[in-house]
Design a protein around this nucleic acid. Structure first.
Length: 267
DNA sequence: ATGGTCGCCCAGCGA
């Protein structure tokens, strides 16, 4: 059986409801993980997703900021909404589902952006980001003969040189500083996670999933970064069939600044 | 080196 999973920082699920329903109609992933829904649970547009064939929804939402949601065509069960760094932010949601005879634990993350100044001594947002990545070490790629794990989301870090438009020019820019990139890579490998986007599309090919709203012409300047990620436990990596980064979604009418990424597995 | 744009909902914060 084929199984597909999408992740997208949608930057307001209510404003971009027409875009996300069109995404589901055209690409029909089995599961979609959203970040930055910016919506309290009680205002989440359940009905529109239900009508699109996605009846199973798990949400961790708050008013105005952050928020993640996992929506699915197949049954999912909420495992945990973990309050990383104990700030009350809604930045994580884990669910479990079945695919190809495996129980799959799915983590949906929205890592703090970290502000502008990459110094934890003077910028509490950067301190928070580093602390968050450290706490993520507790989330490991659990697997067995009957189970597997997936971790997706907006991790707000572009770890590799080919994940940014200019490695040299971004070394002191939050999202690509060495403390972040080595921290994330150390957390990933230490936890047993495989970077599926880079398995499918190895370096030195550039991959971007985000382009700033502040560029006059995002496409012409193409100053992107790979901030969104799809990881899995080692036992799922041989089942990966492909990764699609929907670059064209950045050119949609009233777009998110992030684009969807879709992983397809043969289970 | 600087400023540039969004979305939350109406002021300023977070990205």
């Amino acid at each position: 059986m084929t199984f597909s999973l999408a992740t997208w920082n949608i930057n307001s699920v209510r404003l971009r409801l027409p875009l996300v329903t069109e995404l589901l109609r055209r690409y029909a992933p089995d599961i979609l993980c959203l970040q930055e829904i910016k919506c309290p649970d009680e205002f989440f547009p359940y009905q529109a997703f239900h009508d699109a064939g996605y009846a199973h929804v798990a949400i961790s939402g708050q008013k105005g900021y952050h928020g993640v949601a996992t929506i699915s065509r197949v049954p999912i069960e909420l495992v945990e909404r973990r309050d990383f760094c104990a700030k009350g932010d809604c930045r994580h949601l884990s669910t479990i589902f079945q695919a190809g005879g495996l129980n799959v634990l799915l983590h949906n993350f929205y890592v703090p952006a970290g502000g502008d100044e990459p110094d934890p001594e003077i910028n509490p947002k950067f301190r928070h980001k580093l602390d968050f990545i450290e706490e993520m070490r507790l989330v490991t790629a659990e697997q067995s003969e009957a189970s597997a794990s997936i971790l997706v989301g907006d991790l707000n870090i572009a770890p590799l040189e080919a994940d940014v438009w200019s490695h040299k020019q971004l070394l002191k820019i939050v999202s690509h500083t060495p403390v972040e990139t080595t921290g994330l890579e150390s957390m990933r490998t230490g936890g047993g996670w495989v970077d599926l986007m880079r398995q499918a599309i190895p370096e030195p090919e550039k991959i971007y999933t985000w382009w700033s709203y502040r560029a006059a012409d995002w496409e012409a300047s193409d100053r992107g970064r790979r901030l969104d990620h799809i990881w899995s436990s080692a036992n799922l990596s041989p089942k990966l069939k492909g990764i699609e980064v929907l670059r064209h979604a950045r050119g949609w009418d009233r777009p998110s600044d992030h684009v969807p990424v879709i992983a397809t597995f043969e289970m």
